[in-house]
Simulated assay, not measured.
Amino acid sequence: MRGPLRRALGAWGLLCGAALAALLLAVFCASRGASVTTLLEEGPARTLACALTGPPDASFLVAPEDAGDLVSEGEVTVLFRPGCPDCEAVMGLFPTGGARWVSTRSAAGAALAASVGASEVPAYLTRGADGSIGGVTLDAALTMAAEKKEGGLRA
Rank of each mutant, 00 (worst) to 15 (best):
A141I: 00
A108S: 03
G128E: 13
A110K: 13
Y124A: 07
A123M: 08
L142I: 03
T137A: 13
D139R: 09
T126H: 09
Y124S: 05
A107V: 02
E120R: 15
G128R: 14
A110G: 15
L142E: 07
L142V: 02
G131D: 11
A110F: 03
V136Q: 09
T137L: 12
L112N: 04
R127Y: 11
L125D: 06
V136F: 07
D130Q: 04
A110H: 11
A111H: 08
A114V: 07
A111G: 02
A114K: 12
A108V: 03
T126P: 07
A107T: 04
G134H: 15
V136M: 15
G109E: 09
G128Y: 12
T137Y: 11
G117M: 05
S115Q: 11
L138T: 07
G117R: 00
G134I: 08
A108L: 05
T126W: 10
G131K: 04
L142G: 03
R127G: 02
P122V: 00
S132A: 09
L112P: 10
S115F: 03
S132D: 13
G134P: 08
Y124L: 09
L142M: 06
E120D: 15
T126F: 05
L112W: 10
A111R: 06
G131H: 08
Y124V: 01
V121Y: 05
A110Y: 05
P122D: 05
A118K: 00
L125G: 02
A140R: 15
A129K: 13
G134W: 15
T126L: 05
S119H: 13
A107E: 14
L138F: 14
A113P: 08
L112Q: 09
G131V: 03
E120W: 14
D130R: 00
D139E: 15
A129M: 11
A123N: 05
R127P: 08
T137S: 15
D130A: 12
P122E: 06
L112R: 14
Y124Q: 07
A141H: 10
L125K: 00
V121I: 04
R127A: 09
A111M: 02
A111T: 01
A129H: 11
A110W: 04
V116I: 06
G109K: 08
R127T: 02
A113D: 06
V136Y: 06
G134Y: 13
A108H: 04
G131E: 09
E120A: 11
A113S: 10
I133A: 01
A108M: 04
Y124I: 01
A140S: 15
V121H: 05
P122F: 04
T126Y: 09
T126D: 07
G135K: 11
A123L: 07
A113Q: 07
A108I: 06
A110N: 10
V121Q: 10
